[in-house]
C-alpha cells in the first residue's frame, strides 16, 4: 500500500508539472495575440482609435474584479487543503460570481462596440483587439465551467484527494488568467491613453 501511495504522489507531482508546461504553451499562444495587437493597433483605416473607444473606469473595474477573484480562489484552495468543505465552496462560489461579473462587463463592452458599428470586420486594430481580449474571455469562460463542475462534484462526493488536486490545478489556471489580464489592462487599455 505504501508503494501505491508513493506511486500516486509521484503521479500528482507530474500532473502539476505537466499542467505548468501547458500554461506556458498557453502563454506563448497569447504572445502571438499580443504581438499582433502591438503591430496592428495603429491600423484603424480612418476609424476610431483605442483612445476614442475605451473607457478606463470600466477596465479598472474588470481588473479589480479579476484580481479579487484570484485572491478568493487562493483562499478557497487553502480551505480545501485544510479539508473545510463549506469554506471551500463559499470561497470558490465568490470566485465564480466575481469571474462571471468580469465576463458580463466584458460582454457589455463588446456589445456596445458592435452596436456602434465597431466590429471584428472593421479594421485590423479591432480584429486584433477582439481576438486578444476575446481569447482571454474564452479562457475565463472555460475556467468558470471547470469551477462549476468541480463545485458540483464537491457537493456530491465531498472533498477527496482527487478533487483537491483538481482545485489546485484550477487555481493555478485562474491565477494565470489574472496575470495575462494584467498585460491586457496595461498594453491595451492603459496603453491606448499613454
Amino acid at each position: 500500500m505504501v508503494n501505491h501511495e508513493a506511486h500516486e504522489a509521484a503521479a500528482d507531482e507530474r500532473v502539476m508539472f505537466g499542467f505548468w508546461v501547458y500554461l506556458m504553451t498557453d502563454l506563448l499562444l497569447f504572445s502571438v495575440l499580443f504581438a499582433s495587437y502591438s503591430v496592428l493597433h495603429g491600423n484603424t483605416v480612418g476609424g476610431p482609435t483605442g483612445r476614442d473607444l475605451f473607457t478606463l473606469p470600466l477596465a479598472l473595474q474588470e481588473t479589480i474584479l479579476l484580481l479579487t477573484s484570484s485572491f478568493t480562489c487562493g483562499l478557497g484552495l487553502l480551505a480545501a487543503r485544510s479539508n473545510k468543505k463549506w469554506q471551500t465552496l463559499i470561497c470558490f462560489g465568490i470566485t465564480f460570481i466575481l469571474g462571471a461579473l468580469f465576463l458580463s462587463l466584458e460582454m457589455k463592452e463588446f456589445t456596445e462596440f458592435i452596436h456602434s458599428g465597431q466590429t471584428l470586420q472593421t479594421n485590423a486594430f479591432l480584429s486584433s483587439f477582439f481576438v486578444l481580449v476575446g481569447t482571454h474571455g474564452l479562457h475565463i469562460t472555460s475556467g468558470l465551467l471547470w469551477m462549476g463542475v468541480t463545485m458540483g462534484y464537491i457537493l456530491k462526493r465531498g472533498l477527496n484527494k482527487a478533487l483537491v488536486r483538481k482545485l489546485a490545478l484550477l487555481s493555478l489556471f485562474w491565477h494565470f488568467l489574472d496575470i495575462v489580464w494584467i498585460f491586457i489592462f496595461t498594453i491595451v487599455y492603459l496603453g491606448a491613453f499613454a
Binding site: D12, I64, L67, F71, G74, R81, R165, A168
Partner: peptide, 28 residues
C-alpha cells in the same frame, strides 16, 4: 501550490495571499 503545501504553514500561505493581493492592487 501542490496538494501538500511544501514547507509552508497554513498561516504563512494565508499571509502570502493577503500581501500579494494588496501589492497587486496598489500596482494596478
Amino acid at each position: 501550490s501542490t496538494p501538500a503545501p511544501h514547507g509552508m504553514s497554513e498561516q504563512k500561505t494565508l499571509t502570502s495571499y493577503v500581501v500579494g493581493f494588496l501589492l497587486s492592487l496598489s500596482f494596478t
